[in-house]
């Protein structure tokens, strides 16, 4: 049965494919429309540039009444990201609105990368370095940017690290593999949605 949340997630996915915001992508995982993987590219001209950060989004049947649980899978060094990858971002907590969709969530997280809020630190070292020692902060960020390329490869069973920041190749592989599966489900969702 297509519930409104599943139907809405299929539409979120369709929109992400048809009208993709710059620097983010996401897709449901193979057999579960409620579990998504996404990738956020580090915004250009910021210390996060060239990073390809992987995230997981877990939705419930209460989406979009309730926000998904969003976590970085890639290692992150950021004032508002906890050690387990959870993100401290108002729109994912008390300022959530049902009018946000997946694209809005991902682009908000992308802008959070270079616009941290040091007043609600989730990683106190990152918050401290961000305010007091920007050089060291950027060095740490550079480390996780490099690790992000490695993680993408590992997750695809390809441990070989591309030497030229070849993140785009592996990255595409992740997206293509997930979107094919989601397409199949998409048709299913579309068929039942028309019965509503």
């Amino acid at each position: 049965m297509t519930t409104p949340s599943r139907r809405r997630l299929m539409r979120d996915f369709k929109k992400l494919q048809e009208d993709p915001p710059a620097g983010v992508s996401g897709a449901p995982t193979e057999d579960n429309i409620l579990a998504w993987e996404a990738i956020i590219f580090g915004p250009q001209e910021t210390p996060f540039e060239d990073g390809t950060f992987k995230l997981s989004l877990e939705f419930t049947e209460e989406y979009p009444n309730k926000p998904p649980t969003v976590k970085f899978i890639s290692k992150m060094f950021h004032p508002n990201v906890y050690a387990d990858g959870s993100i401290c971002l108002d729109i994912l907590q008390n300022r959530w609105s049902p009018t946000y969709d997946v694209a809005a969530i991902l682009t908000s997280i992308q802008s959070l990368l270079d616009e941290p809020n040091p007043n609600s630190p989730a990683n106190s070292l990152a918050a401290q370095l961000y305010q007091e020692n920007r050089r060291e902060y950027e060095k740490r960020v550079q480390q996780i940017v490099e690790q992000s390329w490695l993680n993408i490869g590992e997750n695809e069973g390809d441990v070989e690290l591309k030497d030229d920041g070849g993140d785009s190749i592996d990255e595409k592989a992740v997206i293509t593999s997930t979107s094919e599966n989601a397409d199949a489900e998409n048709n299913e969702g579309g068929a039942s949605a028309s019965n509503v």
Binding site: R7, R8, R11, P64, P98, T99, Y100, D101, A104, V196
Partner: peptide, 17 residues
């Protein structure tokens, strides 16, 4: 100025129902 895509979705689901 409500976000068009999600707003259309809520309106459509409601009016269809």
């Amino acid at each position: 100025g409500f976000p068009d895509w999600t707003t259309n979705d809520f309106c459509e689901v409601f009016t269809d129902w």
